Amino acid sequence: MSKPVIAIVGRPNVGKSTIFNRIVGERVAIVEDRPGVTRDRIYSHGEWLNREFNVIDTGGIEIGDEPLLVQMRAQAELAIKEADVIIFIVNGREGVTAADQEVAKLLFRSKKPVVLGVNKIDHPDMQEELYEFYSLGIGDPIPISGAHGLGLGDLLDACVEHFPEDEGDDYAEDTIRISLIGRPNVGKSSLVNAMLGEERVIVSNIPGTTRDAIDTAFSRDDQEYVLIDTAGMRKRGKVYESTEKYSVLRSLKAIERSDVVLVVLNGEEGIIEQDKKIAGYA
């Protein structure tokens, strides 16, 4: 069963990574009191009301033409496309900024459910600070404090309400689902074709040829199987490359709906650090 995806977005230095760490229950994202520390998408898992989900922490969305700002914005936009629900974090102590308004416009265009979290509301006397954020047109602002863990239950309650119903897949219940994961260009597609005895999947020496998780159903000895060939999983710093926009999350989703996970390695190169990280996902 594929887990719902929550993306946490907002302008820099509003507390996104602190809230991300609170939700997943461990210090995964780096937290520093300066903008731009989180530059790539960071993935982890959470659970609330007996519902498991994936969470994406993103770099802050800023307007500008500098290469780093453009890349951070692009990363956030990709996370929005991957998400089922978006948490939009703003800073309650600073009020609505022009950057907040730009992020709100971006979220409107996404047509995705958005939950508005007003961070740094640490005291009941600060509740009046919330009213200004209705001007963003996102909905009811939820007061939270990432630093103290306040209000996160209300925030996650609102997210769960927007989770899609699990539709499963079209395969019979006794079908064995096998996913193949690994770095780009280690031969996953070639292995799928060899197991099937025919050219079902495109094979190329160019890393990133397989961009989606591809299902191939077959039967053997009266048993139904599905092979799931996934895009190669790169180091986080290279996730932005255009040929693999959603590869990491789609690989994770393939793993979640698999009965067996086959980690494919390059025998000529041996086991490298990235192989160990990928095996950890399984």
Rank of each mutant, 00 (worst) to 15 (best):
residue 69 L to W: 05
residue 87 I to S: 09
residue 275 D to P: 04
residue 174 D to L: 06
residue 93 R to C: 08
residue 187 G to E: 13
residue 65 D to W: 01
residue 155 L to G: 08
residue 180 L to Q: 09
residue 236 R to W: 04
residue 206 I to P: 01
residue 20 F to E: 06
residue 116 L to W: 03
residue 252 L to N: 02
residue 231 A to F: 04
residue 11 R to S: 02
residue 235 K to D: 15
residue 163 F to I: 03
residue 245 K to M: 09
residue 42 I to S: 07
residue 74 A to W: 00
residue 114 V to A: 00
residue 271 I to L: 14
residue 139 G to A: 00
residue 28 V to L: 08
residue 258 S to K: 02
residue 21 N to L: 10
residue 185 N to V: 14
residue 21 N to I: 12
residue 132 E to R: 09
residue 76 A to M: 01
residue 197 G to H: 11
residue 183 R to K: 15
residue 259 D to P: 10
residue 176 I to P: 05
residue 54 N to V: 03
residue 188 K to N: 14
residue 87 I to V: 15
residue 182 G to P: 01
residue 11 R to Y: 02
residue 276 K to I: 06
residue 100 D to L: 06
residue 232 G to N: 09
residue 88 F to Q: 02
residue 92 G to Q: 08
residue 125 D to P: 03
residue 34 R to E: 14
residue 129 E to W: 03
residue 19 I to Y: 03
residue 20 F to A: 06
residue 168 G to T: 07
residue 229 D to T: 06
residue 124 P to H: 03
residue 60 G to I: 02
residue 59 G to W: 02
residue 130 L to E: 04
residue 261 V to T: 12
residue 49 L to G: 04
residue 217 A to P: 03
residue 7 A to V: 08
residue 257 R to P: 10
residue 24 V to L: 10
residue 66 E to M: 11
residue 191 L to F: 12
residue 105 K to A: 05
residue 179 S to G: 08
residue 213 A to F: 01
residue 227 L to N: 11
residue 44 S to I: 06
residue 247 S to R: 13
residue 227 L to I: 13
residue 35 P to Y: 11
residue 1 M to Q: 12
residue 161 E to L: 15
residue 167 E to W: 00
residue 281 Y to W: 12
residue 168 G to E: 04
residue 47 E to F: 04
residue 215 D to T: 02
residue 199 E to C: 03
residue 277 K to I: 11
residue 97 T to Y: 05
residue 113 P to C: 07
residue 118 V to L: 03
residue 184 P to K: 12
residue 254 A to V: 00
residue 51 R to L: 05
residue 126 M to S: 07
residue 65 D to S: 10
residue 246 Y to D: 07
residue 85 V to L: 03
residue 199 E to R: 15
residue 208 G to N: 13
residue 60 G to N: 00
residue 265 L to I: 12
residue 221 D to V: 00
residue 51 R to T: 01
residue 273 E to C: 05
residue 210 T to M: 14
residue 19 I to V: 15
residue 160 V to G: 02
residue 282 A to N: 07
residue 210 T to E: 14
residue 178 I to T: 08
residue 122 D to A: 05
residue 64 G to N: 03
